[in-house]
Design a protein around this nucleic acid. Structure first.
Lengths: 213, 213
DNA sequence: AGACTGGTGTTACCGCAAGTAACATGCACG
DNA sequence: CGTGCATGTTACTTGCGGTAACACCAGTCT
């Protein structure tokens, strides 16, 4: 019965861990990315050392928290990417899915991408090495889809990876800017980005009076 | 004499400020973005409060430091963007300029974009709200060039801004990934990104056996 | 029953970094 | 000379991440 007991303990630990993560989520959503370990522990009704026992250090907690949201976002992106539709429609659906996600939960998004920005003390979560993973994972995922589906001729694999990361970066930067300024509707943004991807930059004519960009 | 005196004092203050910034630069380049105010002050041969008198707080120092590098980078990008050449060549030159810059001084780049990532204590510079400005400035700059030179038909201005931020984001993300993994030469990366911008994504054929991406 | 073990929880502390008085000094001007 | 004023200092507070040491409470083994 050794195994069953261990399993039970582990289940309990896992449940606890999930509760802690949910508490951390609440705090981060409320206080922004500058949430302190003390604040998270208080929200969970416990004290710091327990958090450290579960997550090692702050980076561990962050990573666990980020993984939840990242996985969820990647799932919905995969769905959009795999939908049965024309390529253009699929690209637009994927862009829209991403933008809808960051629009719906900007706090989560800012936590994942730009930690420690709203906090007064500025001693919050260090992102840096953490913001990359989400972008990187999205980039690799997209690269895989591109490589699997598109016929790019010779040198296709590295090309797909460059494109994957490049497109994800485009989506991210444009989304970040859009979220801050809201210069247009989501649909317009999606359309503009898809147009860019569809080569309108190369196809556009020069403006009268000068050499084109 | 009031004005001349003030001017002289201000000149002295400005020189001092520049010296402090150069010291900060050295420390950041040596110790990474986790450099502490104490370390910077020591490098400059003074103590903390003086730094605070000059820059207000750490964010101020960071902003001043970032502005120097950002301005320099933007200058070289402008040069590439304004060169007398075909559009495609110009795009490639701009991409290459950016990538060459981050390749030549990755420490500076990482400081500007991903602060606090190599430090053991992880209590270094908070970027977050600081990394955005560089990207945003590049995006706006590019948007302006696009809007000035290209004939995009109706709704041209918002479209140009979306593209500006999108392209900058593409360049940034691809460059960041490339800098970390070095999966190909710089020239290949430039070529792949320009191809992406030139609509090869839309033009590519489906791979045999499945619907295209 | 009683010692043993392992997980949960605590208080109290360390080290370190940002940021801030409060005090000292050199140098111009009236 | 004294009065500003910028420059410099030491010494401090606050708040964070992280840890050590101890307390409790289940079941388990003998």
């Amino acid at each position: 019965m050794d195994t069953t007991q261990r399993t039970e303990q582990q289940r309990s630990a896992d449940r606890r861990r999930r509760e802690l993560l949910e508490a951390a989520d609440r705090v981060v959503l409320r206080d922004g990315p500058g949430a302190s370990m003390n604040a998270i522990a208080a929200e969970a009704g416990i004290t710091k050392p327990i958090l450290y026992r579960h997550f090692g250090d702050k980076g561990g907690l962050y990573a666990a928290l980020a993984k939840r949201h990242t996985d969820a976002l990647l799932d919905s992106l995969r769905a959009a990417l795999d939908a049965p539709a024309e390529r253009r429609e699929r690209v637009e659906a994927t862009l829209d899915t991403y933008l809808a996600a960051i629009e719906a939960r900007p706090q989560v998004y800012r936590f994942l991408m730009h930690p420690a920005e709203g906090s007064p003390s500025e001693q919050g979560f260090d992102v840096g090495k953490h913001s990359a993973p989400l972008l990187r994972r999205m980039g690799e995922e997209l690269a895989q889809v591109i490589g699997e589906r598109l016929d790019l001729g010779p040198g296709s694999h590295p090309l797909a990876r460059v494109w994957g990361h490049g497109i994800v970066g485009m989506m991210h930067a444009a989304g970040d800017w859009w979220l801050g300024e809201r210069p247009c509707s989501r649909a317009e943004l999606v359309r503009s980005l898809a147009d860019l991807l569809w080569g309108r930059l190369a196809a556009a004519g020069d403006k009268v009076g000068g050499p084109g960009f």
